[in-house]
């Protein structure tokens, strides 16, 4: 039922225009988590933290 279509497109447009240094996949992942959090803020924050940690993890040699 929930489709992030226009929302995702707008956020991506802002990212590409003003924050090109932020990876599109990370931004999309955070939006997905927030959209499916059912207003459970703690769970959303945990999952977002995990996504950012994954993103910042140094690439395996």
């Amino acid at each position: 039922m929930r489709d992030l279509g226009a929302l995702g497109e707008t956020v991506e447009a802002v990212r590409a225009r003003s924050f090109p240094e932020l990876p599109a996949e990370l931004v999309a992942r955070i939006l997905e988590i927030e959209a499916s959090s059912h207003d459970d803020r703690l769970r959303a924050r945990d999952q977002v933290t995990q996504a950012i940690t994954e993103h910042l993890k140094p690439a395996a040699p």
């Binding site: 226009a6 929302l7 707008t10 956020v11 447009a13 802002v14 990212r15 003003s18 924050f19 240094e21 932020l22 990370l26 931004v27 955070i30 950012i52 940690t53 993103h55 910042l56």
Partner: peptide, 24 residues
């Protein structure tokens, strides 16, 4: 790095709220 990324993300989403409201 975490502080930099999260601060940038916060600014991005703040701008996106305005842009999304206008677009909608």
């Amino acid at each position: 790095a975490r502080e930099k990324v999260t601060a940038a993300l916060a600014a991005l989403f703040d701008q996106a709220v305005v842009a999304y409201r206008d677009k909608l």
